Simulated assay, not measured.
Amino acid sequence: MYQFRKEERLCSKKFLDKLFNNGSSFLVYPFRVVHLREPLPVHYPAQVVIVVPKRRFKRAHDRNLIKRRIREAYRLHKESSLYPFLSEHHIQLLLSLQYVGKEIVDYKVINKKLLAVFGQLAKIYVEDAGKGS
């Protein structure tokens, strides 16, 4: 249940290009989120890529620490906060979580902000569904 499988990671160059060229974005500091509705070849409702820029964090161990914390928060909350909403509305999503903060923050902050990201995504797609009706 609380797993983060290979099929949930966005690795396809084709999908990455499509996401960054055609996707919409918003900011929930310290995350910049790029999202795009797209039919996926896997049975998971979302594929995600986590980005921490080398320009801002020169040391690999700092980037890895941040990515580890983001992956853990995503892994724990996707089943309760993201997937039920996406499945209910039949949405398949490409998602990029880009860390734009200038310092390394605690896991608690990342956890709280990732839940805010999921709430913002739900709000966006509920509004889209309302416009389509």
Rank of each mutant, 00 (worst) to 15 (best):
M1R: 14
R5P: 05
E7F: 09
L10C: 04
L10Y: 00
K14A: 13
F15A: 15
L16C: 00
L16P: 04
D17T: 06
F20T: 00
S24L: 10
L27A: 03
L27T: 08
Y29A: 04
P30T: 02
V33N: 00
V33G: 00
P39M: 11
L40W: 11
Y44M: 02
Y44D: 01
A46M: 11
A46E: 08
V48K: 00
V49F: 08
I50W: 03
V52G: 08
K58C: 01
K58G: 14
K67Q: 05
R68D: 03
R69K: 14
I70P: 07
E72C: 11
E72D: 10
R75Q: 10
R75Y: 09
S80F: 04
P84C: 12
S87G: 14
H90V: 11
I91R: 03
Q92C: 02
L93V: 05
L93H: 03
L97I: 06
Y99D: 00
I104V: 15
V105T: 12
V105R: 06
Y107K: 05
K113P: 03
L114R: 00
L115I: 13
A116R: 13
F118E: 00
F118R: 01
I124W: 14
I124P: 04
Y125H: 10
V126N: 13
A129R: 11
G132L: 10
G132A: 15
S133I: 10
